[in-house]
């Protein structure tokens, strides 16, 4: 499989688990730990898919997404939201998300989502 994936989460465990799973499928992965780094990376590079955590200190994932979309960037975005935060899902779609996955999640299911988003 081909594709460059940007994974953004402040939780190192999640970042590493997602990265290794996606890499095992042959994808190229870069990770970022907070919203402003993510924005920078999103504007610097060409990404096939962005996996974006909602709950981060500093800028939230929704804010990052909003700014990405405001720049006219239509890269597919998969949001990672916490269970019980259904409002994040609504807000996420309103901000232009393509999919969401609730935490705790199965890395395998996430890979399937990413694959689907790659088209």
């Amino acid at each position: 499989m081909n594709g460059r994936i940007l994974v953004v989460d402040d939780d190192r465990d999640i970042r590493d688990l997602v990265a290794i799973k996606l890499e095992s499928a042959g994808l190229e992965v870069e990770t970022r730990a907070d919203g402003s780094e993510a924005l920078q990376a999103a504007s610097d590079g060409e990404w096939s898919v962005i996996v974006l955590d909602v709950m981060m200190p500093g800028m939230s994932g929704i804010d990052v997404l909003r700014q990405i979309r405001d720049r006219g960037d239509r890269t597919p975005v998969i949001l990672l939201t916490a269970r019980g935060q259904e409002k994040d899902i609504e807000a996420g779609f309103a901000a232009g998300a393509d999919h969401y996955v609730t935490k705790p999640f199965s890395p395998r299911a996430l890979l399937a989502r990413v694959t689907a988003a790659l088209g």
Partner: peptide
């Protein structure tokens, strides 16, 4: 233990 808080499924 720390990683298990975030994931489910086969990886868990």
């Amino acid at each position: 233990s720390s990683m298990l808080r975030g994931i489910t499924g086969e990886a868990a």
